[in-house]
Simulated scan of single mutants.
Amino acid sequence: MSNEQPNNPLHGVKLAEILEKLVEHYGFEELSERININCFKSNPTVKSSLKFLRRMPWAREKVENLYLKLIQKQKKA
């Protein structure tokens, strides 16, 4: 049985990579406007945000969805 997921753009992409890409593109200020969670508003760091996102599936899902929108937008450009 194969573990490949050719139709899943998140397969093999670590949460840290996703967050770093979003912070690089948007910055924490705009990221906090797009996703209203405190870890992006109050003294944000990648490390503290990752800790929060790993514990809160609902927040991680929002971050992953924003990442998917970003990569789709970049593919069209």
Rank of each mutant, 00 (worst) to 15 (best):
P57I: 03
K76P: 00
S42Y: 15
P9Y: 05
E29G: 04
I35G: 09
E24N: 10
V23T: 12
H11Y: 13
E24K: 15
N65M: 12
F52V: 12
G27D: 04
R60Y: 03
C39P: 01
N38L: 11
S48D: 07
E61F: 07
E20K: 14
H25F: 06
Y26C: 05
T45M: 12
I71E: 01
V63Y: 01
I35K: 13
R54N: 08
K14Q: 14
L66W: 02
I18G: 00
L19K: 01
V46G: 04
R55I: 07
V46L: 07
L53D: 11
E33M: 09
L68A: 10
E29P: 02
V46C: 06
E17M: 10
R55K: 11
N43G: 10
L50A: 04
K75R: 08
R54Q: 12
P9R: 09
E29N: 05
E24L: 12
R54K: 05
L22D: 02
T45D: 14
E24T: 10
G12M: 09
F28A: 13
K69W: 01
V23P: 00
L50N: 05
K69I: 09
L22P: 01
E4Q: 14
K47E: 11
S49K: 01
N3Y: 15
V13S: 05
I37V: 04
E61M: 15
Y67G: 11
H11V: 06
E30C: 05
V63P: 00
K47I: 08
N7Q: 15
K69E: 02
L68I: 13
S42R: 15
M1V: 15
P6E: 13
E4I: 08
E29H: 04
N36E: 13
N8W: 06
S32T: 00
I71G: 14
S48Y: 06
V46K: 02
P9W: 03
C39W: 01
W58E: 06
P44A: 09
N8G: 14
K76F: 04
M56H: 10
L53F: 05
S48A: 08
L31S: 06
E64C: 13
A77W: 14
F28Q: 08
N43L: 14
L15V: 07
Y26R: 03
Q72L: 07
R34G: 05
P6I: 13
V13F: 06
N65C: 05
R60K: 12
P57T: 05
L50R: 02
S2W: 11
E4T: 09
M56S: 12
H25E: 07
Q5A: 15
L31T: 02
Q5E: 15
I71N: 12
I18R: 00
E33Y: 03
G12S: 10
Q72Y: 13
L50S: 04
T45L: 10
N65V: 06
S42D: 14
N8K: 11
V13R: 06
A59Q: 04
H25Y: 07
K47R: 10
E64W: 06
E24P: 12
R54I: 08
F28W: 06
S49R: 00
R60G: 00
Q5Y: 06
K73P: 02
P44Y: 01
E61Y: 11
L70W: 01
G27H: 01
G27V: 08
L10D: 13
V23W: 00
P44H: 02
S32C: 12
E30Y: 01
K21M: 04
K75F: 08
S48E: 09
I37T: 01
K75G: 04
L50F: 04
A16T: 03
E64Y: 13
S48G: 09
K47Y: 09
L53C: 03
E64K: 08
